[in-house]
């Protein structure tokens, strides 16, 4: 696989002008004919999709159409599920994600994931960020401290928690927990972020804060976000992919620039869904 850059602070520290980066529409992740079978039954089939570097790609569609399963293929979390078989091809730059001998640990460092329910570990705020870093070979105390501060600033949590870094992470509010989870992923300097409905378990106010945070990450990370909130997808997405269930199997119906998908979709199913008629 491509050798990794060591985690450094400079990697995280961007000049202020870069904060609202732009999406450049240059393919970064290529998904080809991807299918997932669970205990012999297909969950989704034949998904071919190209994801642009630095862009926010929203995956939309009704429940059960395989959007979340699709995300877990990209960082090979599917390996943990017994009876789950993935076929097809995923490449990130030149890296073959589904290759049998691949070091999944390094893969998952390059690809961060944020879950629907905030899931910080039952440790202190500091330990939540520090322990994954240490496990990935960062030993220098000063570097760790700098990374913690930089990522917490990135997610806008620094001012809120800087005086209580050693208090339990589970004592934070739901929105703060979710931002901490995002910080935990960012600390490992990933290139891709997978977000599985990151706002749906939060109250509207926290949801708005997290949404703004995601927008602020545009340009620096390639973001795939599953969301049921069409208004949110319209607000934040550069690209969009629309999934639908046909005969009990999830399929990708249409993908492209978000504005086109939401305003002049080619497929009648997409049109019906985005106008709120179906799904």
């Amino acid at each position: 696989m491509t050798p990794l850059e060591p985690i450094t602070v400079s990697h995280l520290h961007h000049p202020a002008g870069d904060r609202f980066g732009r999406c450049e529409r240059q393919p970064f992740v290529e998904v080809d004919q991807l299918s997932l079978h669970y205990r012999g039954k297909p969950a989704f089939q034949d998904v071919t999709l190209s994801i642009n570097k630095g862009c926010i790609t929203a995956l939309v569609g009704p429940s059960g159409c395989g959007k979340t399963s699709f995300l877990t293929c990209l960082n090979r979390l599917t390996d943990l599920i017994a009876g789950c078989r993935v076929s097809g091809r995923i490449t990130i730059e030149t890296l073959d994600v589904l290759a049998p001998g691949l070091d999944v640990i390094q893969l998952r460092r390059r690809i961060g994931m944020i879950f629907q329910k905030p899931n910080p570990f039952p440790l202190s705020i500091r330990k939540n960020l520090e322990f994954p870093l240490r496990e990935h070979g960062v030993r220098d105390r000063r570097q760790i401290a700098q990374t913690i501060e930089a990522t917490l600033r990135d997610v806008g949590l620094w001012e809120e928690v800087k005086d209580r870094l050693d208090s339990p992470a589970l004592a934070l509010s739901g929105g703060q927990q979710q931002r901490l989870c995002i910080a935990r992923s960012l600390a490992l300097a990933p290139e891709v972020l997978l977000m599985d409905e990151p706002c749906s378990a939060l109250d509207p106010l926290s949801s708005g804060v997290v949404e703004d945070l995601i927008v602020s990450l545009r340009g620096r990370y390639t973001i795939l976000i599953v969301t049921h909130n069409l208004a949110q997808a319209r607000r934040i997405a550069d690209d969009a992919a629309f999934f639908w269930v046909q005969n009990g199997v999830g399929r990708l119906i249409e993908a492209g620039i978000a504005k086109q998908i939401f305003e002049e979709p080619h497929d009648p199913l997409t049109a019906a869904y985005v106008s709120g008629m179906r799904g």
């Binding site: 050798p3 990794l4 850059e5 060591p6 070091d103 640990i105 390094q106 496990e135 990935h136 070979g137």
Partner: peptide, 13 residues
């Protein structure tokens, strides 16, 4: 990067 690789293999071990 060698440091990163050796780190990985020791962890696998």
């Amino acid at each position: 990067m060698t440091s990163s690789n050796s780190n990985t293999s020791s962890r696998w071990a």
